[in-house]
Design a protein around this nucleic acid. Sequence first.
DNA 1: CGCCAGGCTAGCG
DNA 2: CGCTAGCATGGC
Length: 309
Amino acid sequence: MNHHQHSSSGQIALDELAGGIDLQLTLASGQSYRWRRRDGRLFEAPAGHPTPWYETVADGTVICIRQHDDHLEYFGSDGVKEHVESLLRLDDDLSSILEAGPDEPIYREAVATHRGMRLVRDSLYVSLISFICSTQMHVERIHQMVQSLMSEVGTTHHLDGRAYHAFPTPTELAACATATLRGCGLGYRAPYVKRTADRIVKGGIPADATDGPYEQRREALTVFHGVGPKVADCALLFGAGELEAVPLDRWIQRAISAYFPDCDGDDYAATSRLIRERLGPYPGYAQTYLFHYLRTNGGLEDASATGGN
DNA sequence: CGCCAGGCTAGCG
DNA sequence: CGCTAGCATGGC
């Protein structure tokens, strides 16, 4: 299949992107796990520019992209440019979004350290399965699991003699034996993924999970096995462009006790409301900066000790 | 070796 | 309802 696809390529000047972009940071910050770096070392910073190629397949379109000093270079099958713009949220005015964030020292440190990280825009389905895999797991290993699902179960596309793997469709996942999914490293999450894929094949994603108020959509997504409020928030933020969503994972919970103790509510929904009020007009963006900063810079070590002020 | 990782489910009281 | 043991797996 996909025999002679037309290829397409081009450039996007960085000064056309308000706030610029750090491609490596954006694709290796634990938001999307569908990207493969061609040198196989996604989580090591590249030596310089141009960066290695990053590649994936979305909606049957092969997408390759790398960063130069003053532009992004893309290459792939027809429609690659539109997919790049959408997947990397190139329409976001990053400088305005980051500036509008909360006037909190920990947030400003995170932005100063990781400026250029954009949110991604995957599909709800891809994010849902990816984050079902994410529970009790390191970011690096989530990436291994998803990459394994793509290469073992997903459809292989070819462009100019090179092979690219797509994220498996619900039908492809549902057709897998649980043992196959365990073979991809999913562990106890294998039956969660299988049952969720089965359900999507039979009934799709319910309408109240894709339309309506944010909190209702988060609740609606929990009908899927292996999906609680945190996984639902990740799916909505990274897979449905819901910038209101603030996934309350261990790191953010710790940040709340250390920096925003008054936002510690009685349950997930209550804490979510309190912290969202605190994080400015784009809570999901602020959360992603905090998460990445705390996870990679040990930003909580000294904070809990110096309680005073 | 024991602990931890972008939590959730099931089974208790 | 609220509470929590158990869950697979690999890296440190």
